[in-house]
Nucleic acid binder design. Sequence first.
RNA 1: GCUGACGUAGCUCAAUUGGCAGAGCACCUGAUUUGUAAUCAGGCGGUUGCGAGUUCGAUUCUCGCCGUCAGCUCCA
Length: 645
Amino acid sequence: MLTLVLPDGATREVPYGTLPREVVGSIGPRLLLAAIAVAVDGEVQDLQTPLRKGGKFVVITEKDPRALDVLRHSGAHILATAVRRLRPDAKIGFGPAIEGGFYYDFEVAKPFTPDDLEAFEKEMAKVAAEKLPFVREEVSQAVAKQRFVDDPLKLERLEDFEGTDEIISTYTDGPFVDLCRGPHVPDTSYLKHFKLLSAAGAYWRGDEKRQMLQRIYATAFFKKDELDAHLHQMEEAKRRDHRVVGKQLDLFHFFPVAPGAAFWTPRGTTLYNTIQDFVQERQRDAFIEVKTPLLYTKKLWEQSGHWGKYKENMFLVLNNETDEHDMSLKPMNCPSHHLFFASHKHSYRELPMRYVTFDVLHRNELSGALSGLTRVRQFAQDDCHVYLREDQIADEVKFLMDFILGYYDAFGLTATLKFATRPPERIGSDELWDRAEAALRAALEATGRPYEMKEGDGAFYGPKIDFDVTDSIGRQWQLGTIQLDYNAPERFDLEYVGEDNAAHRPVVIHRAVSGSFERFIAILIEHFAGAFPVWLSPEQVRVLPIADDLAPQAEEIAKRMRAAGIRATYDQRNETLNYRIREAETMKVPYMAVVGRREAEAGTLAVRARGAAGKKQDIVSIDAFIARVTEEIRTRALTATGAEG
RNA sequence: GCUGACGUAGCUCAAUUGGCAGAGCACCUGAUUUGUAAUCAGGCGGUUGCGAGUUCGAUUCUCGCCGUCAGCUCCA
């Protein structure tokens, strides 16, 4: 007998192998209708999978977030059912639920077209309407092999079960059978609100050496408004796309002759420099800024370990002297900082020493991986390497963490922390890794902040804390990082002189805040949808004279603003005021300052804040306005006075 | 890199089965002198990404190259 504990504390004794369906039905027939699946001690299983253990028994209905994964996983099967009906030659791969939806991989002779997707979507609606029950069967290896005799990918998966005592199960809906662990919704009619999103190639088991399958991405929800909201969110993300907004606001370009390397326009350069200035200002006291060469011989990369582990991603340069590609553009700043540190004797009193550099880095990303500013081949980091004593790790991690979180705060971004441990491909002994992971984890724990684990996701030289930032429409981006490195000091033979007058090995921490400026700016563009706060705006005020004869005053006013440190322009073109306002709005200029005859005589401005259409005019003196804007810039206010939210 | 889609004026997009490459915006000129999101008129603007091929004829069909986009961890 198994003991089930219901949420209200009541217990049920049921025989081993009882179906959850029976238990739920006995609690209430209406609950059975609403049930999607159940969870036993937190483990989700469907209503037709026999109970094999007792524990806390929770009925999962639509309201439970875990129900969505079940629905989506079933959606994947329904997709495969539809595809098989229309393309019987399709071999099935995997079809899991993923964050935001689900996909299914197929091996087909001819890739899918958008027309195919439309047909599949219609067929899925039919399958759903047929209300086919999902039938679970637990089968032997031999029976399973029989069942998937025409599906080589499934047979390959079955081989993994050889010699294990795992239960092999299949799920059938109508004509379609899939090797599947479950859980599933009771029948296909549960899938009501779904949409096929895209099709693209995907390697079998993510391995580029294996054949390429065709993956169809889709999403599904229980309620129509949730699906609509999801699709709307995708539209919103598209509207904010930094590649589109960057063009509208004239911030950067790409040219085919420099794939993956941005050309920054005057406006984009202003934005870029403003952000870099901000970092530099924040780092003025506790950091040491240096500039280092871009090009190095391979000797340095051999010493750092990059030549062995990272060569594929480096741009190698032909050395005329040796006639070999034995030089490389730097993909990272760390080795040059190590050279700096090693160039002098250091006392323990000097530590921690924090070197920072904003140099350009080059990484040879796969051509297919390039994407706008978020994945580029040339970029700059706000890169810092800290040299410190082992006993300083906890304090330093806290210091860096506060620095990083404070920085994001200035942009209205919030971060969550991820702790990443040793990856399979790595340098350094296990003893060093043990020490590094223990030290970093202890420092992280000491800050008292919550964090998530990312096992095996560390850098090749050490464990790290990643900062994942959430933007204004809820998307997550990995930005900052704190990486602990015991290997580099060994490789570069770094030393400091301790209190005992003996040489000691320092520890290195790699730290980035923005990740790369390129990607950070892309994120800011999308975060603010191009409507930057005043301090970041490439153009902060646009002065608009109402008629030609007021142009000299407008120019004079713009000059006064510039003298006060405001990025001000004036637009005296022979166009209507409406036209010029529209253009300033389109360019997301935070303030428009209109000068008419009344204002010119009184020394005032009629100020219109961006996005404040229909609001009553704000008549202020020029001096008061300058004071207000300079104050907003100084404090780096996130919302302008009187502007949209 | 691989799979697929796409590439037409500075930008956003048209161009029936292969048959004279177009529009709006931007830009220039002129008129208008403008009070809070597009004044009117005229004009300039193209090796249809690059290179081959098929054809009487290619933006359109075929091949190669370049670039852009989606995807290539999310495990039956």
